[in-house]
Amino acid sequence: MSAPHTTASGVVLRTSGPLAALLRMSAVASNTVREAGRAKLFYGLLGAAILLLAFSIVLSDLALVDQKARLVQSFGLAVIPLVCVATATLMGGLLLHQELDRKTLYAILPKPIARSEFLIGKFVGMAALLGIELGVLVLCWWGVLHLRGGTLTGALVRAFGLAYVELLVVTAVALVFSALSRPVLAGVLTLGVVVVGRTNYVLADLLAATKGVFVEVPAMRSLGKLLVAVVPDLSTFAVADPVLQGWVVPWAYCVSAALYGAAWVAACVVAAALLFERRDFT
């Protein structure tokens, strides 16, 4: 512990040491959650998802009796992660940008907080927000599932756990792009990473094939190899289809997927912090 600093009129400031850093980061994180909690965009996305889930009740009425629960299951596994990824893409880029655009940073960065702490706080806040969103949606969906005679199995919970890891990776990627460029561009680039990342295995297959542009055109081949190398393989976390077919994701898979995700998150947060460190706030 480092010594606190007492000012002339007796106010005690604790600015050094890991505990103080933690307090600062949690202040930024909780403000991020609060900010999103008062943003219309967040409620729009949440509302849309809940509507879709409600719609799945109607939809399941069309299905055969023994297929009702299954339909709700597959619907939830597809829609919930998708909506959350949209939130991560949109808000991940926007939240940092708003701080720059509205110059709220002028009130924060001159305080005794490191820029990297600010960025980590933002990331943790976003992660918490996405956790809340995912949790709310899964709860709603569980209700619908129950209504249709299905049960929440451990395999389904693990699938959502992996979806959460994917959200963290997408948020970290969005953070890098928004530390780098304008919000629209950041959003587009993040979306690109999501699309390429989710279909990474397709690209890998194409590269391994014996024919096709990715094999015959050298430039495309290099591009394909580059994309496979620099874009996180988000298909690792998308286990909806096999889970629906009865595959119980083994714990070993979950752990290795989580580690893979954590490595990407760490790399992206470090990159974002480095970019942020050099930036002029004019």
Partner: peptide
Amino acid sequence: YVAKLYGIDGPT
């Protein structure tokens, strides 16, 4: 919020 960035305790 700002006071937290200086590590000032709650009552203060």
